[in-house]
């Protein structure tokens, strides 16, 4: 190997991934043989119309759904063959999730919501946990609201909490399914700015789905998907 060339390692690699699911009486094919490679450190957006298969693709990459056929490698590990508990461990240690509807637990404060994924990580002691939570909250600029409950926050602030929660476990990949869909344009841009900043500073790989054209110009890579097929 040429020592002068910097090797780009893929964090996720999909080969021939197919997925169908039943919707009422009909079978819907969501993904039709997807081949995709996401490299470490990338800031990628998956774009496509509603029903094009964006969310299904993110679910496959996030190991929360299994393909009917094909191969998905996460950090060179074939995840389609992993048992449920191993997949849970992989998600907890290596993947962060940001959801369209934030999915914060209403009875937990900001810092408790952020701490949640760390509670089941036995590799982290309480002191490390507290430090990570504090850093994650600081990264999203919510130190002054850390004791607030989610219903005391605005939509943008809630999504920041969700981002802090996704980052608290120091994941290799953060997946965001339509993270700005429930936000106004100002907050949408602020969230994307924050994600971009964290991508640059923490070197975390971001992959998010969107159909907001205003955001598409701000990403380093765009992946188009239409009717379950990748478009170049």
């Amino acid at each position: 190997m040429d020592k002068g060339l910097k090797t780009i390692e893929p964090i996720v690699q999909l080969k021939g991934v197919q997925k169908s699911y039943r919707l009422g009486q009909t079978m819907v094919t969501a993904l039709r043989g997807i081949d995709l490679k996401i490299n470490k450190g990338e800031f990628t957006a998956v774009v496509g119309a509603s029903g094009s298969g964006k969310s299904t693709l993110l679910n496959m990459i996030g190991c929360i759904d299994q393909p009917d056929s094909g191969s998905i490698q996460f950090d060179s590990v074939e995840v389609t063959k992993l048992a449920d508990d191993d997949l849970s461990r992989l998600r907890n240690r290596k993947i962060g999730f940001i959801f369209q509807s934030f999915n914060l637990i209403p009875v937990l404060s900001v810092e408790e919501n952020v701490e949640l994924p760390l509670l089941i990580n036995s590799d982290i002691n309480p002191a490390q946990r507290a430090e990570r939570v504090a850093n994650a909250i600081a990264d999203v600029g919510l130190e002054s609201l850390k004791r607030n409950l989610p219903d005391q926050l605005s939509g943008g602030q809630r999504q920041r909490v969700a981002i802090a929660r996704a980052l608290a476990g120091s994941p290799d990949l953060v997946l965001a399914d339509e993270p700005t869909a429930n936000l106004d344009s100002t907050n949408s841009h602020k969230i994307i700015d924050l994600m971009l900043e964290l991508n640059a500073r923490r070197k975390v790989t971001f992959l998010f789905s969107t159909h907001d054209e205003a955001l598409m110009g701000r990403v380093s890579r765009l992946v188009h998907i239409q009717d379950g097929v990748m478009k170049l």
Binding site: G62, I64, D84, D85, S88, R89, L90, R91, N92, R93, F97, F99, S101, N103, I105, L116, P117, I120, N121, R165
Partner: peptide, 16 residues
Amino acid sequence: SQEIGMMRSMGFTRRH
């Protein structure tokens, strides 16, 4: 159920 889905996606096992 959505909250359970969120927790599962964050790495909570079925046992959790």
